[in-house]
Design a protein around this nucleic acid. Structure first.
Length: 224
DNA sequence: TCATTAAGCGTTG
DNA sequence: CAACGCTTAATGA
């Protein structure tokens, strides 16, 4: 079983739980590692766990009818996902791919449902998170078709710095250009050029293996 | 034809 | 050694 300290670190929402809830949640979690490039799950898999990202980077994608993979979102450490499938007892709607070596925390469904039935703090977290995601996906649907590469990249970066989804995250994220490209669904060339331009526009600062956000608001609405 | 990208490779930190 | 950025050849709209 994971330690209480570790649990608090990987799941900031656990800090709001009452003691009994906290212990129950902690007991229902195990961890698992995935190698870079590995599929965590495929669309259609049964989802018996609610999942937290301990370390690493995960891409949420789906295959189009023609078989081409379409990237939907990226997840960074401390993100928790899959509550939709777990709640409904439904199959996963998307593919999850580890873009680098990744460690996941898996909460079994019974524990999740118990928290859902018993913990006010837990439900508060779920509502906040669902609401944050909903807003972003609406923005995505509204603009994505017309967005060129640079704007898609800007929004992907904004995702990864969402204050509700990642409250403890600073302004800096360790990520390579190739990885952001994969998350945004862009080639390395376009990614490289877009990163340079966003940097010129003073929205981000790009170093080797990291990105620092300077203007999150502007990134979020880029291309509108 | 023109634009885009995957692949290869030299450079750099 | 891996990330970066450039060149090139293939692809396809």
């Amino acid at each position: 079983m994971i330690t209480a300290e570790h649990f608090r670190r990987i799941a900031y929402w656990s800090r709001d739980l009452e003691h009994g809830e906290f212990e129950r949640a902690r007991a229902g979690i195990i961890e698992k590692t995935y190698q870079r490039g590995a599929y965590i799950c495929h669309r259609g898999d049964e989802m018996e766990h609610w999942t937290g990202l301990v370390s690493g980077l995960v891409k949420v994608s789906t295959a189009s009818l023609s078989g081409k993979s379409v990237s939907l979102a990226g997840m960074r450490a401390c993100g928790w996902f899959g509550e939709g499938s777990v709640l409904k007892g439904e199959a996963r709607q998307y593919d999850l791919v580890a873009l680098r070596d990744t460690r996941l925390a898996l909460m079994n469904r019974a524990t999740f449902l118990w928290l859902f039935d018993n913990s006010v703090a837990f439900n508060r977290f779920l509502v906040w998170q669902l609401n944050a995601r909903l807003g972003q996906f609406i923005a995505l649907v509204e603009y994505d078709r017309s967005l060129e590469g640079k704007a898609r990249l800007a929004r992907t970066i904004a995702w990864l710095f969402h204050p509700t989804l990642y409250p403890d995250a600073g302004a800096k994220l360790d990520i390579t250009q190739e990885e952001i490209g994969l998350l945004s669904g862009l080639s390395r060339q376009v990614t490289n050029k877009s990163v340079a331009e966003l940097q010129d526009e003073k929205l981000i600062e790009a170093d080797r293996e990291s990105i620092t956000v300077r203007d999150l608001d502007a990134l979020r609405r880029y291309g509108e």
